[in-house]
Amino acid sequence: MATRSESIAGGPAQRQRRGLHRGDAWRTVALGILCALMIAPLIMAIIISFKSPSQFTRVPFLPTWPMRWENYEFAVQIISQFLLNSIITSGATVIGVLLLSSLAAYSFAQIRFPGRTFVFYAVLALMMVPASLTLVPSFVLVRDLRLINTHWSLILPWIAGGQLIGILILRAFFESLPGEMFDACRIDGATDWQIYWHVALPLTRSMLGVVAVLNILGTWNNLIWPTLTLPERKMWPLTPGLYSYMEQYYTSYGRVMAGLLLGSIPLVILFVFTSRLFVEGLTSGAIKT
């Protein structure tokens, strides 16, 4: 495309095109300063995480030697239980969300059942219902269902809420697949269950990844709900766990910072393995609106 407009516009356009990107230097400097400021609190945390209390009192914000790795050993023991809880709850939620939302999305996109539009809008309308409206009644519901102090008190409501965005994304994807392909399968005698499992799901693997990443980010960062439904702290996932860890050991600054940094690692690992899905997921839906 670029070559075409060049050939039409000729020489002057060439000069103008260079003008398209003038001033790289100051932009890089400005963005570099911003990035440095963004990362500054983390650098601070890394430096402090290697300090004993006395080292912190003497030189709080600059590196000191010897480095106190035992802060990390201490933090690991406490954080690992929270991390395990997070993996259980976020993991079970993401499996449920992928299963339910892909089934519903397939049905909405490929099966013309009477009342389909109405049901779809009934699902879509819930996107407008904020968590604040449902917080108190959800708590009472979970209590009445006797789910308090079980991980189900997180998993079940999270599946219900998390599948909405999944249905939206996957329905759009299933609709974009060629309908002839599905018709051909039906003519060959495949049931919709078989088409869903053997044709639609394998084709949609990367979209499922996008939904999974979005869902994990959402549940992983939930701070307040688990503190309501789980009276025992040893049941808490990582996010509220880190909060209680900091409350408990506030004055051992080295240990606190080591814990916060360790607690940040799982999402970084997730990102390293799924960086493309990550960016796609975060910006999905933004182009079309």
Partner: peptide, 28 residues
């Protein structure tokens, strides 16, 4: 003929009714 379509959205609707619609209405 399209009963599979309904079956596929039943789990979703069950979750939504219990954990989304009921709390929302109950909150109001």
């Amino acid at each position: 003929e399209t009963r599979t379509g309904y079956l596929m959205v039943v789990p979703t609707l069950a979750f939504l009714l219990v954990f989304q619609y009921y709390p929302a209405v109950s909150g109001l």
